[in-house]
Structures are given as C-alpha cells and as structure tokens.
Simulated scan of single mutants.
Amino acid sequence: DAMNYASLQIAAAFSFLTVMGGKLKFQKSTIYGGLIGGIIITFLLLMINLGLVTEFNKIKHVALPSLLLAKQISPSIGTIM
C-alpha cells in the first residue's frame, strides 16, 4: 500500500513540480531544496509511524489513530487537528 500511495503522489505532483522547478534561475536551489525537503518529510513520516507502532495497543480500535496520539501529546494539539 505504501508503494502504491507514494507512486500515486509522485505521478500527481510530477507535472506541477517540473514546471515549478524549471522556472528557477539557480538549479542548485532546486537540488538542495528537494533533498532537504525530502529528508524533512521522511523524518516527519518516520516519527508519525514510530508513534503509531509504539502505541499500537491503544490505537488498534480507534477510527483516527493520529488524532488519539495528538490528544495524548496535548489536548490543544488534538483540538487543532
């Protein structure tokens, strides 16, 4: 499922990202922006997945497990989510 979802997102964003990246004057900005952005997104997704895995017994019967985790961190974060 993860590979299917990731490929769907890449396919949907490809046309937009090529136009956006092609208008930059400095190509190094595109490369570094993509690398740094990819690392940040990967880290954030890893943190969410680790949170879900460590609290599996609490979230396995919940409709929105991310919301339950957010409420455990802070009630205000849960309200914002």
Score class of each variant (00 low, 15 high):
71 K>L: 01
58 K>R: 03
14 F>D: 03
61 H>D: 07
51 G>K: 05
65 P>S: 06
81 M>V: 03
46 L>C: 01
17 L>V: 14
59 I>K: 07
3 M>C: 08
35 L>R: 09
14 F>S: 06
38 G>E: 06
50 L>T: 05
10 I>W: 07
6 A>D: 09
46 L>F: 11
62 V>N: 00
51 G>N: 09
42 T>C: 12
64 L>E: 06
32 Y>C: 02
73 I>C: 01
74 S>E: 01
48 I>F: 09
25 K>I: 08
3 M>F: 10
62 V>Q: 03
55 E>S: 12
25 K>E: 14
71 K>I: 00
67 L>I: 01
32 Y>Q: 06
29 S>V: 12
43 F>H: 02
79 T>K: 07
26 F>N: 10
18 T>R: 11
10 I>S: 03
58 K>W: 01
35 L>D: 12
27 Q>P: 07
33 G>S: 08
63 A>F: 00
42 T>M: 09
73 I>Y: 05
48 I>G: 01
14 F>P: 00
3 M>D: 11
30 T>S: 12
3 M>V: 13
59 I>P: 02
16 F>Q: 15
75 P>L: 02
34 G>I: 04
2 A>T: 08
27 Q>G: 02
22 G>N: 09
65 P>V: 14
60 K>N: 02
14 F>I: 10
35 L>Q: 11
19 V>S: 14
24 L>I: 13
11 A>L: 12
8 L>D: 06
10 I>N: 03
67 L>C: 02
54 T>L: 13
27 Q>K: 15
39 I>Q: 02
41 I>P: 06
72 Q>S: 11
32 Y>V: 13
64 L>R: 04
49 N>H: 10
4 N>H: 05
51 G>S: 14
67 L>E: 08
79 T>V: 03
49 N>A: 15
76 S>A: 10
2 A>F: 09
62 V>G: 00
59 I>C: 03
81 M>E: 02
57 N>E: 14
30 T>N: 10
65 P>M: 15
12 A>W: 09
79 T>P: 02
57 N>Q: 15
15 S>L: 11
56 F>S: 07
30 T>I: 07
11 A>E: 06
36 I>R: 03
42 T>I: 05
76 S>F: 06
34 G>S: 06
47 M>A: 15
16 F>M: 11
63 A>D: 12
35 L>C: 10
